[in-house]
């Protein structure tokens, strides 16, 4: 990650944490609405790689605030949701790992039980997949000047992949946490409930699956591979 993006992320962590208590105004005042505005127009001149990084933080720290809506136009909100979801899933995984390493039962940490290890490995795979989808979508959007119509395949594929990970990630996270994860006091629901919400927002599974399926059917069996390789690497 570039130094500029590192600084941007540091700022985002501080500002979003403040906004989580005070509402969206600190995010507006810090100028996040100008993230994608070119420098010559007085903006930050960022790209979707920056948006992806910032929204992954928003997905953890300020999931209930309209940060994505502040930064991007409506046609790109499904893409923004993928980044929010990737961030929230990463946090759900981190909380789960911390919990199973700390919580002792039967005389040892939960994480020492193979059954728990295997569950968390399944969850980690889903989280990595969504992070990869968010990053690959960012690369495509930046490659086509943020034109959503030129990234139709990637937006559909990434949002659908993120949606399909939600059930696995939220259920395993809650399962390994036990009762504590079901409390108002503990932080897990601050990411799992938004994940449940985002799955249905900006296109549920069937919406994107149909759209992508129709697109692929139009390409034909061999055409899918040709299109996929022509669009990236």
């Amino acid at each position: 990650m570039s130094a500029a993006r590192d600084m941007l992320c540091d700022t985002a962590r501080v500002v979003f944490a403040e906004a989580a208590k005070a509402g969206i105004s600190p995010v507006e005042e810090a100028g996040f609405g100008l993230l994608l505005v070119p420098e010559e127009q007085g903006g930050f001149g960022g790209d979707w790689g920056d948006v992806n990084a910032v929204l992954q933080i928003a997905g953890v720290v300020a999931p209930d605030l309209p940060v994505a809506e502040l930064i991007v136009d409506a046609p790109l909100l499904p893409a923004a949701a993928v980044s929010l979801m990737a961030g929230a899933m990463g946090q759900a995984l981190a909380l789960s790992i911390d919990h199973v390493n700390m919580r002792q039962q039967f005389g040892r940490a939960l994480g020492k039980f193979q059954a728990v290890q295997q569950s968390l490995a399944v969850m980690a795979c889903e989280v990595r997949a969504v992070e990869a989808a968010a990053a690959a979508l960012a690369a495509r959007l930046d490659g086509v000047g943020l034109d959503p119509s030129a990234a139709g395949f990637e937006i559909a594929a990434a949002k659908l992949r993120a949606n399909r990970a939600v059930g696995v990630v939220t259920s395993i996270a809650h399962q390994v946490h036990g009762a504590i994860g079901f409390t108002e006091e503990y932080d897990l629901h601050r990411v799992t409930v938004p994940l449940m919400r985002w799955r249905g927002a900006h296109g549920h599974d069937a919406h994107w699956a149909r759209r992508l399926g129709d697109q692929v059917a139009g390409l034909g069996g061999r055409g899918l591979w040709e299109a996929m390789t022509a669009r990236g690497a």
Binding site: A156, L160, A209
Partner: peptide, 23 residues
């Protein structure tokens, strides 16, 4: 080119997973 909706849905799901795996 004009698949049954259930088939289109499956094709879409598989394409999404394959694209992600390739990345």
């Amino acid at each position: 080119p004009d698949p049954d909706p259930a088939v289109a849905t499956l094709i879409g799901e598989l394409a999404s997973e394959m694209w992600t795996l390739r990345q």
